[in-house]
């Protein structure tokens, strides 16, 4: 099995810094904006960008954590059953601009679940999609507003994101194929 590193820790840092600037350009009213990370690595991306917004741009926006398990459309087909974790959205969504974060955008089904779920919490003004990696192969008409890295992949390949906050202890994005 081949393994190719497409981003190292320096690459991730630069990519996220650039994404943060793009996010900042989207934020018109920080008081009416919130970041929402999809568990678990979307939360890591959102957290890092939240920190940059605070340090570089001088404002803080709330961060919500979304567990989409209840909204999945493939529960009865999964051999590895997903373990449900809490969702934390401690702000009123109605009227807000939400920036939805995920690590890898693939078929678009996760994002659809996330949007359905957000709508059940309130009526946001807008939802924008921010992803670290877009690997293509969409099955739904969903496109990101901000992308860190666009990759040409085949369906057999896997895109793995590692973050230093997690078990691996290092930042890297690798593509594994057969």
């Amino acid at each position: 099995m081949s393994e190719k590193e497409v981003l190292d820790s320096r690459g991730i840092e630069k990519t996220i810094a650039r994404m943060a600037d793009q996010v900042a350009a989207l934020v018109q009213d920080p008081g009416q904006t919130a970041l929402v990370g999809i568990r678990s690595y979307g939360v890591t991306v959102a957290r890092r960008i939240q920190k940059i917004l605070e340090e570089k741009h001088g404002y803080s926006v709330p961060l919500g954590i979304l567990d989409i398990t209840m909204y999945r459309d493939d529960l009865h087909r999964l051999d590895q059953y997903p373990v449900m974790q809490p969702t934390h959205l401690e702000f009123d969504l109605t009227g807000r601009t939400l920036l939805l974060f995920d690590d890898v955008l693939y078929t678009g089904r996760t994002v659809r679940c996330a949007m359905d779920q957000l709508m059940d919490y309130g009526r946001p003004k807008t939802i924008r999609l921010v992803v670290l990696v877009d690997r293509g192969h969409r099955e739904l008409p969903i496109q990101p507003d901000i992308v860190g890295l666009t990759l040409q992949t085949s369906a057999e390949e896997k895109v793995m994101v590692h973050f230093s906050e997690e078990e691996s202890g290092e930042d890297r994005v690798v593509v594994t194929g057969r």
Partner: peptide, 17 residues
């Protein structure tokens, strides 16, 4: 159960699971 109890406080108390 803790995750499901959370949705009782939402405006829409229903999930498509």
């Amino acid at each position: 159960t803790r995750s499901f109890k959370q949705i009782f406080t939402r405006s829409v108390k229903k999930v498509p699971t």
